[in-house]
């Protein structure tokens, strides 16, 4: 009965209800954002299990900070900021491990792993052979720098405006738009590899 009572309530009303003791209200609020938060976290960190743990951490963090939320703040922005901060923290820890592993030799190949990733020779050829656009896009998304990926995901997944993203990441709005553009260009490059026609058009544009 209480769940039905909260169905048509705004996010802010739900969070206020939770602050007044309605635990069901917070569950309902998180159900509204569960999918978006998951996709944001899942694309921010490449590993599925890590993303699942990270999503739980986001929920627990929301639960613990819910009583400190002030009605003047938009609930969605507040939620995504919590998720973004946890993801950047996690990405920073992973980058440290990644940097450590990139310095080491990998397998029988004499080159470090970083050089193999940076090299477009073999990867481009495989990509051309596969012609699997979505896979290329997914790979390109995973290879985006964190600041570009977070802006892209916040815009695409969380549907935040550039102004909200700028406020969340602590950057100016032109900077956010610039990062967005870089992210889109890299995705376009991946798509160019997957789709020769588009790639040719792009090359002809570059020659011009």
């Amino acid at each position: 009965m209480r769940v039905l009572f909260f169905v048509n309530r705004s996010d802010e009303a739900l969070l206020i209800a939770y602050q007044k003791g309605e635990g069901q209200a917070l569950c309902l609020l998180m159900q509204r954002y569960e999918k978006r938060l998951w996709n944001f976290v899942r694309r921010f960190v490449a590993d599925h299990a890590t993303a699942e743990d990270l999503l739980q951490d986001v929920f627990v963090r929301v639960l613990r900070n819910a009583n400190e939320w002030q009605p003047r703040a938009k609930v969605s922005t507040w939620l995504f900021t919590i998720a973004r901060n946890l993801c950047t923290d996690q990405a920073r820890r992973m980058s440290v491990r990644k940097a450590r592993s990139l310095d080491e030799n990998s397998g029988d190949d004499e080159r470090p792993l970083g050089e193999k990733i940076a090299s477009h020779d073999g990867g481009a050829e495989e990509a051309l052979l596969r012609r699997e656009s979505s896979t290329e896009i997914e790979a390109a998304l995973g290879q985006l720098p964190d600041e570009q990926r977070e802006v892209f995901l916040m815009r695409e997944v969380l549907d935040m405006s550039f102004a909200e993203i700028a406020a969340a990441v602590g950057a100016s709005e032109p900077t956010v738009k610039s990062r967005m553009r870089y992210a889109l260009e890299k995705l376009r490059d991946a798509l160019t590899v997957a789709e020769p026609v588009v790639a040719q058009a792009s090359e002809s544009e570059k020659r011009l």
């Binding site: 569960e34 938060l37 699942e52 998304l141 695409e156 798509l191």
Partner: peptide
């Protein structure tokens, strides 16, 4: 092309 990748259902563990 990206959109379908960003519309996956969340695992139940978080809720």
């Amino acid at each position: 092309l990206v959109r379908p990748m960003l519309d996956q259902a969340a695992p139940a563990s978080a809720m």
